[in-house]
Write a protein that binds this DNA or RNA. Sequence first.
DNA 1: TTTTAGAAGAAAATATATTTTTGTTGCCGC
DNA 2: GCGGCAACAAAAATATATTTTCTTCTAAAA
Lengths: 233, 233
Amino acid sequence: MVPRPIECPMSGSATQAVYELLRANLLAGLYRPEEKLKISELGAAFAVSTGAIREALARLTAEGLVTALPQRGFRVAPVSAADLRDLTDMRIEIETKCLRRAIENGDIGWETAVVAAHHRMAATPIAAADGSFSPAWTIAHGEFHAALAQACGSVWMMRVRDLLFVHNERYLDLARKTDRGNRDVAREHRELMEAALARDAERAVTIMTAHLAKTRDTIEAALLAAAAMTEAR
Amino acid sequence: MVPRPIECPMSGSATQAVYELLRANLLAGLYRPEEKLKISELGAAFAVSTGAIREALARLTAEGLVTALPQRGFRVAPVSAADLRDLTDMRIEIETKCLRRAIENGDIGWETAVVAAHHRMAATPIAAADGSFSPAWTIAHGEFHAALAQACGSVWMMRVRDLLFVHNERYLDLARKTDRGNRDVAREHRELMEAALARDAERAVTIMTAHLAKTRDTIEAALLAAAAMTEAR
DNA sequence: TTTTAGAAGAAAATATATTTTTGTTGCCGC
DNA sequence: GCGGCAACAAAAATATATTTTCTTCTAAAA
């Protein structure tokens, strides 16, 4: 057989590629909440047909990252302080439950994965040139938290966790320039890892809860500040 | 203005209608797990273009009701006893948490909705002519459980609850002919409502947990029996 | 007899064209 | 001058056609 030409399409199909790209852009805050996502514009931008865009948007709609208004197209899902509080409450519930079970069930493979993920995250610069989170750190951060939860041994719990985490990422970016100096995120993560590896469930849960709540408060402040600014214009 | 012709399209767009219909069929167990969902066949069956089908399937993929294999089309998501156990564990966590919060926060409107939903469900025949659950009862049942949880006051909690509930429905149908006689489901539901209205959180949670576990066991038995039969053919 | 290569057919992925709907602007009547 | 109606433009929804990819059947060689 003739070896295939180099090509190697990014992710199988064009639709899949568009979906992933669009999703990444959405999570990175490239489009503002409530912004209209014009199908033909996106099609032109990504150089694919409108059908592929529609399919990607349909998937994102089911995920809740975009909203679909019948006959009126798609928009970026809205954000609000109330939603953030609700989301964080739920995240605290799920993340701590995952964490407890992971600490109980985790084997040496889990420990190794956590240490590895933490090492990568710690070695990655947190800020990009423009003041936002660097994409590499965002990925490493997500993988660290995922690694921590992984050993919970439940596919559904991980699935729900991932869903909530992804939605939080959308908010995370909004707080990018807000008092990051007031906070030692690296230390929080390190302590989290240490408590988990020490199998100290109570301490780990306490740290995780504080970590998530602190993140929420930081974002909420940025969110309210932005809202006030919009109000006053 | 000329009054529009009767039409009144079921749910806005054709895609939306196809999505809802396909989803209902999926939950009713009309297609078997792992079965291939041919786009052109579905398009012919529903008398819409392939694009509409693709869009509906994309949304269902994001929901986890169907799986997409790149370049190889779509299939009905698989089921397994392990997945059912995992799913039920998660459901018990979430449903009981919703229930506790609803019992704490629920106002007179909530009580009214619960009573109303229960009344409708109790008055609906549970079995259809062919031995499966009647569609009307399935809907009423879903609405009863939703009404119970509604007052939890968290959009995200309800969203996760709904996701899990929907996936459970897919399993529910598999156990349709299995020893339903051994079980007094109506009594379980009545006791659940009574405990909730009496604001007895502990009792309500106990009943709910038993209810969900019992459902799981019934389905699991049917699932294993079906697997054994497939094995032996 | 089994395995593999090739070709034909089927189905999915994608692009393009058409139709329908919606939002906007300008004009006419009040 | 203000409100409503009509025509136009933009965008979404849908259908159809084309291309690509995968699967299966057959035939030939080991």
